[in-house]
Design a protein around this nucleic acid. Structure first.
Length: 488
RNA sequence: GGUCUCUUGGCCGAGUGGUUAGGCAGCGGUCUGCAAAACCGCGUACGGCGGUUCAACUCCGCCAGAGACCUCCA
């Protein structure tokens, strides 16, 4: 069995063995958020997906540089209408704020909620607004190579010429001829030589606040350019992995690929990875449909479609129960099931720490170890990994009950394995951990006292103690080996 | 309309040409002063219709339904 990592590459539509360009270094670029609104469930999916990849690559011993950008400029409200307004600017005007104040606010919010989800911060988090110079340099390069032209202070990418030279649409599997016939006639595209040409630099109209000087005009960069410029700056002309939501495949990544290919003359990304969407009642969440649930609403409750609040780890666990390339549909029933499943896993982890080693080993740990490794190496198959981790939980419970036993050496290995996969690779955490630690000593005292009460068969009092604790969220269980306690 | 994907037991969700995914919920049992938890056992599922094959849920075709992209989106 080949224990190499295999990843599904959108570019080749196949699972490929992952071979870094410059081992042990790995360059990973992921499209980050546009910070003009509160982070919602849709932002959580790529963040968690590529957090798992980041964690796994590090676990496999790679030295990873993970770049995830902040888009804070240049995305137009309506690119093809020509009169588009920068979204951040629009939001700023509506809220009577400085544009950078909006950017800062939502960036902070994004970080706050990503931390709740236990998403590790990337190695570099560059802002598009901080890389105007690099983007302008890239435009000059593309003009110099003859693949862009200037009209009235705006610069457009010459898609027809690119298509004739390199072939456009390789990533999304599109035929540019098809696209031509399907392009609607919209106002303001007369500047372009070809309707599908996209802006590299856009002249700012007088109402724009965010603009920068250039030899073409006072303006701002086109919306595909920042990822090309920043990816190249921090990861080099060629790098290993580029990720993002699959809704970005076209046109965003296709255009980015075109720009980068022209400017360097070589393919800039080896592996393109795309996570699937989150749906709500079978519909994709999106700005235009106005059917998204923010992470704040998710964690605190209060959204009309939610029966209750769901914790960050429940959300993370729920997403990991599906493969990243499958859509995930949110429903109350499914989330409640995930909550229970996560609780089972965490209780197992809690118990694993308390197990005492036995005389002999009667369980097969090695099998789970290799299966877990296999699952993650098979294109990050987290649902299958979880099924093996639950097998681990069953083993823990059986040992705990005395039906199986494990020697010290094997137990240490087992503990290490579970810790690495549950906490380090899947990035789950026990949300009760702090409370558990805090209550440890008082609970020991209470259980000790209750044991005496039970010894003199005062069951009325012992039940009262138990009931009081249940109302505080603490469950007492009288096992053969004495009473233990857990938090829901 | 074009391109593409999906349709698995009550719910969620993997996977494979012939061998148990897993989680949640449910039922029965063991344990227990009771309870809870845990453990054991149980459901024998793969949209419909054909075809290929010794054998298909897994391959092919058609039909039905759902979704994604084609426009900002994670």
């Amino acid at each position: 069995m080949d224990q190499s990592l295999f990843l599904y590459n959108t570019l080749t539509r196949a699972k490929e063995k992952f071979v870094p360009l410059n081992p042990p270094n790995v360059g990973l670029y992921v499209c980050g958020p546009t910070v003009y609104g509160d982070p919602h469930l849709g932002h959580a999916r790529p963040a968690v997906t590529f957090d798992i990849l980041f964690r796994l690559l590090k676990h496999l011993g790679y030295k990873v540089r993970y770049v995830r950008n902040i888009t804070d400029v240049g995305h137009l409200e309506d690119e093809f209408a020509g009169e588009g307004e920068d979204r951040i600017l629009k939001k700023a005007r509506l809220e009577q704020l400085e544009p950078m104040e909006v950017v800062q606010y939502y960036t902070n919010r994004y970080h706050f909620f990503m931390d709740k989800l236990n998403v590790l911060p990337p190695s570099i988090e560059p802002h598009a607004s901080g890389h105007i110079i690099e983007q302008q340099q890239l435009i000059r390069k593309i003009i110099g190579d003859g693949f862009a032209y200037e009209v009235n202070g705006s610069v457009y990418f010459d898609l027809k010429k690119y298509n004739d030279t390199f072939g456009y649409g390789v990533l999304s599997g599109r035929d540019i001829g098809d696209m031509l016939s399907n392009t609607r006639d919209l106002e303001g595209q007369d500047e372009k030589k070809y309707p599908l040409d996209f802006a590299l630099w856009k002249k700012a109209d007088p109402t724009h606040i965010m603009h920068w000087p250039s030899e073409w005009s006072e303006g701002f960069p086109g919306w595909h350019l920042e990822c090309s410029a920043m990816g190249m700056k921090y990861l080099g002309e060629q790098y290993d992995i580029h990720g993002g939501g699959m809704d970005l495949i076209f046109p965003h990544h296709e255009c980015e690929l075109a720009q980068s290919t022209v400017s360097t003359g070589k393919p800039h990304v080896r592996y393109w990875l795309h996570n699937n969407m989150i749906t709500l009642n079978g519909q994709k969440m999106s700005k235009s449909k106005n059917n998204f649930i923010t992470l704040e609403e998710m964690f605190a409750g209060g959204h009309a479609l939610l029966e209750k609040a769901f914790s960050p780890m429940t959300i993370r666990f729920y997403m990991l129960q599906a493969h990243y390339s499958s859509p995930v549909d949110f429903s109350n029933e499914a989330l409640k099931a995930a909550e229970q499943g996560l609780s089972r896993l965490m209780k197992g982890m809690f118990r694993l720490a308390l197990i005492t080693p036995g005389e002999k080993t009667t369980v097969d740990i090695e099998k789970i170890l290799s299966k877990a490794e296999e699952a993650m190496n098979d294109d990050l198959n987290t649902p299958v990994l979880l099924s093996h981790l639950f097998d681990g939980v069953r083993i823990i419970n059986l040992i705990d009950e005395g039906k199986e036993s494990i020697q010290k050496e094997a137990l240490d290995k087992f503990r290490d394995f579970m810790r690495v996969y549950v906490f380090e690779i899947l990035g789950l955490r026990d949300e009760n951990e702090e409370k558990l630690e805090l209550l440890k000593v008082p609970m020991e005292m209470i259980l000790h006292w209750r044991k005496e009460v039970k010894a003199r068969k005062d069951f009325g009092l012992s039940d009262e103690i138990r009931n009081k604790l249940i109302s505080c969220g603490i469950t007492i269980k009288d096992t053969k080996n004495g009473a233990i306690w857990e938090m829901e």
